[in-house]
Nucleic acid binder design. Structure first.
Lengths: 202, 202
DNA sequence: CGTTCTGTTGACATTTTTGTCGGTAGCGGC
DNA sequence: GCCGCTACCGACAAAAATGTCAACAGAACG
């Protein structure tokens, strides 16, 4: 009957990119990285395939942009929590907590796992950049004494946060355990070590 | 010159499948799951595309078989290390160490990450099976007292082992730290907690 | 209004990946 | 030796995914 033609929304370039990347993030969280097909992304964003290509050049460009965006968000989130605490000691605990939050939500750990699994050179630069940003942030707040032991411990915390963030929910579900307990226990391990260290030294 | 025709090797069905899956494993470890294309698998195994399909039906069948195989290998490896120790207390430490070994080598953590990222129902059954096997194994060795706290702690250990196994090497490399330190520190965290627990209780 | 700029699109072309099919060839049994 | 079974293969078909293009249509500006 009616000759209704489809309404065509016209966004600013930034809004258009943002819209598409948001759809990508949803897909990544819900179905994993292998589901980031051009057609799916376009459908999720409610635009045509060609529109996605117009803004990002290729599906590879989309993925790169998505990584950059998610890494930036992740670093910012950690930075906020990190800078809440004034004392260096409390900051380590808060920092660990921030790490677990960052990787446990919004697919931070899934992104990292994806990067690790695909692990091409181009993508590694993204991770390297993130690590350097966090490292620089910490140094800016706590000063230079970033000796090896501290760095190693940080890496352990990051690895733990990633492991718990990526697998914690699934594992807990498999054994019918409450999911948040894993996170708490892991954080407790870290904080116990910190208390022990500072207690011995101070 | 010569009319040399390509020698055609003829394997038993089991050997043929094994050959193909071994090639898959190499590809998975080296290039990640997204590189598990039919053509690459066939080339890696030194057979024709059609041969791979003949044995597994579809590329999906290949991936499922690969997961099953790797999970079985992983469970067996953990089981061996696990049963080395007689006392239950030492077994927890040895078990943690076995977990870290299992997930840190032969792509155990990468397999788990792959399963987690793709995470479809069919694949989840594979993980569930593995968890149940390990759980049954532990119960067979240590008896039934598998209360919630113990389970939760086990899950934390598994998550840590996975996180360290998957990201440890890359993270250490990014900061120029020796890779094995992360593992040692993480294990130390676990064992410290065990000593504390057993010391308080016994 | 008319013009320009460009975000948007469907239709189509290209490339990549998967799957099918008829025939070939190694191997054990007789 | 030959026969049946089936692992194996090349060639081709089908499907899926990516990318191209010319044209359409909002929005700002005169």
């Amino acid at each position: 009957m009616s000759t209704e033609r489809p309404v065509r929304v016209r966004r600013s370039p930034e809004a258009a990119r943002e819209n598409i990347l948001a759809a990508c993030e949803a897909i990544l969280l819900e179905k994993g990285p292998q589901a980031l097909k051009l057609a799916d992304v376009a459908a999720g964003a409610g635009v045509a395939n060609a529109t996605v290509l117009h803004h990002f050049g290729s599906i590879d460009g989309v993925q790169t942009a998505l990584m950059t965006r998610m890494i930036r968000q992740l670093v910012e989130r950690v930075a906020v929590d990190f800078s809440q605490h004034q004392d260096a000691v409390g900051r380590v605990g808060a920092g660990a907590r921030a790490l677990f939050d960052a990787f446990g939500t919004r697919g931070g750990a899934r992104l990292a796992a994806w990067l690790e699994l695909t692990g091409e050179a181009r993508r590694m630069t993204a991770i390297r950049q993130a690590v350097q940003e966090v490292s620089a942030l910490r140094m800016q707040l706590d000063g230079p004494p970033d000796d090896g032991a501290v760095q190693d411990f940080m890496l352990v915390c990051i690895s733990m946060a990633l492991g718990v963030g990526l697998f914690g929910a699934t594992l807990a579900d498999l054994l019918g355990r409450p999911p948040e307990r894993i996170r708490e226990i892991a954080l407790d391990l870290i904080e116990a070590r910190i208390r022990q260290e500072t207690g011995a030294q101070g």
